[in-house]
Design a protein around this nucleic acid. Structure first.
Lengths: 226, 226
DNA sequence: GGTCCTCCCTACCATTTAGTATTTATATTT
DNA sequence: AAATATAAATACTAAATGGTAGGGAGGACC
């Protein structure tokens, strides 16, 4: 106590220790999120208890509360990851210089990659109602922007002739439905790889949306079965 | 009061009174199911309490238990209605004499009609886990049959040339995803009528699946918006 | 009028589960 | 090595909610 242990002694590398700790903490937090997302996705948000999540991780429930202050925050984080994927796809599409249809497919591919990714295998976005009102408003608004951007992409395609005449609003709901429904049936142990699925779906979307007289009519080389 | 209005008037059809009672009971049961299905669909099964359902109907909770022995039975009934719609569509498709693609569209249209119908606006089929094990097995098995039939319809179309080469399994997941996702966004108060939606989606599915060189390449006469 | 029978409601119970208070172990710093 | 801060476990609280028991109101039939 003769000397207050503050400044001089902690100076050498006080930051690194803190950094390592923070890094570990960050990783643990992510592990919690990953497990929770997977469980929420498989069994539903309300059907998954915090004890369930904890037991999968081999820890006890209060531990989870060191990383997320509530179950709802966990759900909120899941929603954000999913929306991050959507926005990443939109950014990719914006960066690509091509037709509206091409942009749309680039976007949807990226979005699907997120869905298949460990973390992005995120909760069916249905459960907006379980969120805290403030978070809900946030999620709804952000999702609305993503939806609108999807619609705009399709409208662009219709305008430049790469997409056949259609109602962009309905066409976007069509495309997003296909993609959003994936978590409902996809299982890692299933017969198809994410790549096969993305390939097939992209091809189906392309042929579904492409303008009838489109110059290059792509179709995935499907494996004939019989 | 001199004459009890009972006997004479009731005598002619004593059975009718009983019938009316049963009929009333049946109607009440249906009302419960309708309200519950709507609530489950909107807010999720687990987020909807029996008190919620009861209060919408203006009755008390125990009353519900006169028509359904448990909340899970209510969910089971919802699943059955949805599957009834699917099977009705399959029957319609089987009765139609045409290409695989035509059959598929007939089936999916009927299925969508069910989804838009008051009652068929049924719970996202996701919540299989909330069912009693026995019911769950039943639902899973029946759904698997419907899924398989959908796949078969597509395989038929591929075989007869009305549908382009593709993996029938993935194509069926594609088509069912579009349709199953509808309850997630459709609202009666929305801008589009069920007919418009069905028309658009059918057109998108047709052009998405039809064989490239298909003789009659249909495209819905979309209303050009601008 | 008396007796069912049907229906529904007011409590109530029991279970599940989100979240917390308190204690114990672990690692880091001086 | 002592001290401190962090992390995690045990044991608990409180609220929500599925489901039930028992009673009361009203019509139907003798």
């Amino acid at each position: 106590m003769s000397d207050t242990p503050s400044a001089a002694t902690r100076a050498p590398a006080p930051g690194r220790a803190a950094f390592d700790r923070d890094e570990q903490r960050r990783r643990k937090r992510e592990a919690v999120l990953r497990v929770a997302a997977s469980a929420f996705n498989r069994r539903g948000f309300a059907n998954t208890s915090m004890d369930d999540v904890a037991s999968v991780l081999g820890v006890s429930k209060p531990t989870l509360y060191q990383y997320f202050k509530s179950k709802q925050e966990l759900l909120y984080a899941c929603h954000q990851v999913a929306m991050d994927n959507g926005e990443a796809g939109l950014a990719l599409a914006a960066a690509h210089d091509g037709t509206g249809l091409e942009k749309l497919i680039i976007y949807l591919r990226r979005y699907m990659e997120g869905i298949f990714g460990d973390l992005g295998n995120c909760p069916v976005l249905t459960d907006v109602d379980s969120l805290v009102p403030e978070d809900r408003a946030n999620v709804v608004a952000r999702r609305k922007r993503i939806s609108a951007a999807t619609k705009e992409l399709i409208a662009l395609g219709v305008a430049d002739g790469s997409i056949g005449p259609c109602d962009p609003k309905l066409a976007s709901l069509f495309a997003l439905g296909v993609v959003n429904w994936i978590p409902a049936w996809y299982r890692d142990s299933g017969p198809n790889t994410p790549e096969e699925i993305m390939e097939s779906f992209a091809a189906l979307l392309i042929s579904g949306l492409a303008a009838p007289a489109a110059p290059k009519r792509q179709r995935a080389k499907a494996k004939p079965k019989a």
